[in-house]
């Protein structure tokens, strides 16, 4: 465990807490893409299958439980909770995310570490996570103005990926056979998706203006 990875995990945890805070405090999920949240549930469930079979550390197991339960809790709120579900932008959140699921699964069948159930699921979760933010970014561009918490949510999600890339660079130089080419490629693609959001986020922060994404 290196500092970059810990920073990445903590930043990732912050993104989940921001969403839970926003939903709990405002009883609203406007501006949040349910499709992205559903994709994250699939990512965590597919990736943490080894929760009970492959003990790495207490930290690792606790964080897995936190990510799975919180992502399911967010989807539950947005689908079931009587107050929150009414504020969901159903008409705006129209990204056909099942194509992302099918594409990631197809890619995982072709490119994986070992052609085993667990490795295919792991590769699937890595590819799916790389594109899971797309419905959210499309929703933000559609709804034009971005409320602070949602903007911070996407910003921290991007930051967590940047920390993970730094973590891989660090591990590449400090460990012998550290070959995570699947994570490398998917991670770079994922972080690139945030690039333009970061640009507009920085502009809005510099001009101290409301974050406006070009439609």
């Amino acid at each position: 465990m290196n500092a970059f990875r810990l920073a990445g995990d903590m930043t990732h945890l912050i993104t989940v807490l921001i969403l839970l805070l926003k939903i709990y405090a405002t009883k609203s999920c406007s501006g949040i893409s349910l499709k992205t949240q559903e994709l994250y549930v699939m990512v965590f469930v597919a990736r943490y299958l080894d929760l009970f079979t492959n003990f790495i550390s207490v930290y690792n197991s606790v964080m897995k439980v936190v990510f799975v339960t919180s992502s399911i809790a967010i989807v539950w709120c947005m689908r079931i909770h009587p107050l929150v579900r009414r504020t969901y932008d159903k008409e705006q959140d129209t990204f056909r995310h099942y194509f992302l699921v099918a594409g990631s699964f197809g890619l995982a069948l072709l490119f994986n570490e070992n052609f085993t159930f667990r490795e295919v699921c792991w590769a699937f979760s890595i590819y799916l996570e790389a594109v899971a933010i797309l419905p959210q970014l499309v929703l933000l561009q559609r709804s034009g103005n971005v409320d602070n918490l949602t903007g911070q949510y996407v910003f921290f999600l991007g930051a967590y990926r940047v920390f993970y890339i730094l973590n891989w660079i660090y591990r590449y130089f400090t460990e012998k056979h550290f070959s995570r080419w699947i994570s490398w490629i998917a991670g770079l693609v994922q972080t690139a998706l945030y690039a333009d959001f970061f640009y507009y986020y920085f502009i809005s922060w510099k001009n101290n203006s409301k974050l406006q994404l070009p439609a």
């Binding site: 990875r5 492959n54 897995k64 490795e119 993970y164 994570s183």
Partner: peptide, 10 residues
């Protein structure tokens, strides 16, 4: 053979 491929990251 190569040690079991461990996914030790989240």
């Amino acid at each position: 053979d190569e040690e079991e491929y461990k996914h030790d990251e989240l």
